[in-house]
């Protein structure tokens, strides 16, 4: 039997660009959570321990406005400008 593939379509050419670190920024590491309570708590704890144990800082913590929506591109740009590293949590 010959069928038309129901999954067929035009594949996206979208790729994710990896921004190269450009010199020093004000912050060392930021956490970005999906806004679920567990994700926020986890990032807070990881950031605190990285600062205490390894002197990584200053650290920041941000979240999407809610788990139901994507992160605001302006927030991502802001974090990329302010921090060198990011730890992103997707938890529930």
């Amino acid at each position: 039997m010959h069928i038309v593939d129901p999954t067929s379509g035009i594949a996206s050419s979208e790729t994710v660009a990896v921004a190269v670190s450009e010199g020093s920024r004000a912050g060392a590491l930021c956490g970005l959570s999906n806004s679920k309570p567990g994700a926020h708590d986890l990032l807070e704890a990881v950031g605190r321990r990285l600062a205490d144990d390894h002197g990584i800082g200053p650290n920041g913590l941000e979240a999407k406005p809610s788990a139901a929506v994507g992160a605001d591109p302006e927030l991502l740009d802001h974090l990329a400008a302010q921090y060198r590293l990011a730890v992103v949590a997707i938890g529930d």
Partner: peptide, 12 residues
């Protein structure tokens, strides 16, 4: 910006 993603096993 370099990043690390923490994910729970169910969402992997």
């Amino acid at each position: 910006m370099r990043s690390i993603l923490v994910v729970t096993s169910s969402f992997l």
